[in-house]
Amino acid sequence: MPTPTFKTPNQPRVLLTVKDVAVLDNCSEKTVRRAIASGLLQAIRVGPGGRLLRIDPAAHAAYRAASQW
C-alpha cells in the first residue's frame, strides 16, 4: 500500500516585486506603482512599516486579463 503524500501548508508563497512585474509587462516600475495606487493591481505591503510592495502572481494575472483589449 503506497504511503499518502501531504503538502505542507507552511511552504513560502512566491510573490513578485514591483520590478518583476515591470519586467514581465515591459513597462516602468512607476507604471506598476501607478496601477497599484489606482487600485487596478492588488499588492501586499510587507517588511518593516509595510514599506515593501509584493504582488501575488494571481493578482498580476487578473490585472493582465483586465487590461487586455
Rank of each mutant, 00 (worst) to 15 (best):
L24Y: 11
I36H: 00
L24E: 10
N26P: 00
L52A: 14
R64Q: 11
F6C: 08
Q11A: 15
V14W: 05
R45A: 12
A43M: 01
H60R: 13
P12Q: 09
P2W: 09
N10W: 09
D25G: 01
T8P: 04
I36T: 07
D56P: 08
A61G: 06
Q11G: 07
G50Y: 06
K19D: 11
C27K: 04
P57C: 06
L40Y: 05
D25L: 14
P9E: 10
V14P: 01
G49L: 06
P57H: 06
I44W: 05
L40I: 02
G47N: 07
L41E: 01
I36P: 02
G50A: 07
L15H: 05
H60E: 07
I55R: 00
A22L: 00
Y63G: 00
M1E: 09
L24S: 12
D20A: 07
D25K: 05
R54W: 04
P2T: 14
A59R: 01
Q68H: 11
Q11H: 13
I55Y: 00
P9L: 15
A66I: 02
L53G: 03
S28T: 15
V14Y: 07
Q42L: 15
G39S: 02
T3D: 10
Q11C: 10
A59K: 03
I55Q: 01
V32F: 02
D25S: 13
W69Q: 08
I44A: 09
R54V: 04
K30M: 13
A43N: 02
K30G: 10
K7Y: 11
E29S: 14
R51L: 13
Q68P: 00
I44S: 08
Q11Y: 12
H60I: 01
A37W: 04
K19H: 11
K7E: 14
T5E: 12
N26W: 00
A35Y: 04
Q42H: 12
A22C: 01
Q11M: 14
D20Y: 06
L52E: 12
A66K: 10
I36R: 01
A22E: 01
P57D: 07
F6K: 11
K7A: 15
A22F: 03
P48G: 10
S67L: 10
G47A: 06
T5G: 05
A35K: 02
N10P: 00
